[in-house]
Design a protein around this nucleic acid. Structure first.
Length: 155
DNA sequence: GCCAACGTTGGC
DNA sequence: GCCAACGTTGGC
């Protein structure tokens, strides 16, 4: 069991959008960074925990909890010339980019980035390191437990 | 809108 | 393989 933080622009897909989806599940597509892709392809497992993060918005921060569902599969948008995420170098025989399904479990209060930065126990989060921009970053079990308890009141 | 930081591309 | 130029991310 591993844990991840996944960034989404709420204008594109917000925690409310995820919770309103069938089965509260949505395809995570449009990742166009190799390091983030490799996490999806090589490390994510069915059931992994996800911190759902709102980025590039007025109130950046963690907005909910989710989990990984199933296995990765080719991202359909890479083959679609009309898509913003079209990649002319990708073919169905040799896909470059992948999707994975994410199921919302809780919408939480917004845990703002500034508050995350103020918590000593979370100082080592990859998200908070200088220059960190990756849209998918690993979260340690300790970091997960701390944030889960903070947001859900769970022990 | 600004800009720092990082990633990708492509000529050589 | 180097590296300059360019593009993107994302907080502020």
């Amino acid at each position: 069991m591993q844990y991840w933080l996944m960034k989404s622009e709420p204008d594109e897909v917000s925690i409310d959008d995820v919770m309103a989806s069938p089965n509260r599940t949505t395809a995570w597509f449009g990742v166009r960074n190799y390091q983030a892709r490799n996490f999806m392809r090589d490390a994510m497992r069915d059931g992994d925990g996800v911190l759902f993060y709102h980025s590039s918005c007025a109130q950046p921060g963690i907005a909910g909890l989710a989990r990984i569902v199933g296995q990765p599969y080719p991202d359909a948008s890479q083959f679609d010339p009309a898509s913003h995420y079209f990649d002319p170098k990708a073919t169905p025989e040799q896909p470059r980019w992948i999707s994975i399904d994410v199921q919302g479990t809780h919408k939480t209060r917004l845990l703002p980035l500034a508050e995350l930065r103020s918590i000593p126990e979370l100082a080592d989060m990859v998200l908070l390191q200088k220059g960190s921009r990756l849209s998918i970053t690993p979260v340690t079990p300790d970091q997960w437990r701390y944030i889960e308890a903070l947001l859900t009141g769970a022990a």
